[in-house]
């Protein structure tokens, strides 16, 4: 099956002010893969993500989602296929209540009545937020907002989930809950993150972006074991792979 693949070929993006955000980026993500895109601040991660659902138009290069090239004509379909969870849930939640917010996408897809209700209920209980349905989004805690933001995207039944910094700003407990939730999804998943422990736990494959180029692309464990590569890209090993902070000895079992 090829319809949940993401293929990026020779992607280049130059902002109107002349900043070269992406020089040349190519990769292929297969169905069901869980891939992390990591890199220092300003490496081009967010710019890359914004191309995946057609919000930015490439200066050069192609993007294929499934069997379709990303063009103006295929945009509505691709936006449904690629569910995008933003870094700041406040940007994503804009309706008066949680229910309205989750219903926004399905309503645009033409759902109504009891099917709509059912879809919203399902997505909210999937992220453990069924009890929040009548609350206004701005009264929720950070973790709750994040979960509701994920529910709004799930409600579109996307095949590919793209998340920008899913664990940023979450407390350890909320982060743990989110990781468990994400592990459960069978979608093709693409994350960007600075939380390398999360990457280590969730993604079998990692792509490192550095100054708008793909610096490395391979199994997560291999990449995190390459100290020189990480240092060159202004990154560090995840804490779980570093030596014990108390006694300085290597942790066992890794």
């Amino acid at each position: 099956m090829s319809h949940h693949i993401v293929q990026v070929k020779g992607l280049r993006h130059i902002y109107p002010d002349g900043t070269i955000a992406l020089q040349e980026v190519s990769f292929l993500i297969h169905h069901g893969e869980s891939v992390a895109i990591i890199g220092a601040n300003g490496a081009g991660k967010s710019t890359l993500l914004q191309h995946l659902n057609g919000y930015l138009t490439p200066t050069a290069g192609d993007i294929n989602i499934g069997d379709f090239p990303l063009t103006r004509a295929t945009l509505p379909d691709i936006r449904r296929t690629v569910g995008m969870v933003f870094q700041d849930p406040d940007d994503q939640l804009f309706m008066p209540t949680v229910f309205d917010d989750v219903a926004f996408g399905p309503l645009n897809l033409g759902l109504s009545g009891s099917i709509l209700e059912q879809r919203v209920e399902e997505c909210l209980s999937r992220v453990g937020a069924a009890h929040l349905r009548d609350k206004p989004p701005y009264h929720l805690s950070g973790g709750e907002k994040k979960r509701v933001a994920i529910a709004t995207v799930l409600a579109m039944s996307p095949d590919i989930l793209v998340m920008d910094e899913p664990t940023s700003g979450l407390d350890p407990h909320a982060r743990r809950q989110l990781l468990a939730l994400l592990k459960d999804f069978s979608h093709t998943k693409i994350f960007t993150s600075h939380d390398l422990d999360m990457v280590f736990e969730l993604c079998e494959r990692t792509i490192i972006l550095h100054e708008g180029l793909v610096k490395a692309d391979g199994p997560t464990r291999e990449i995190f074991n390459n100290a020189d590569l990480l240092a060159e890209c202004c990154l560090e090993k995840p804490f779980s792979m570093q030596n014990c902070a108390a006694c300085g000895r290597p942790k066992t079992g890794l």
Binding site: Y55, P76, V82, Q92, F94, F104, G105, M156
Partner: peptide, 12 residues
């Protein structure tokens, strides 16, 4: 960004 979130969820 809010507009982008709306577009991403099929706003037409």
């Amino acid at each position: 960004r809010v507009h982008m979130a709306m577009l991403a969820r099929g706003f037409s």
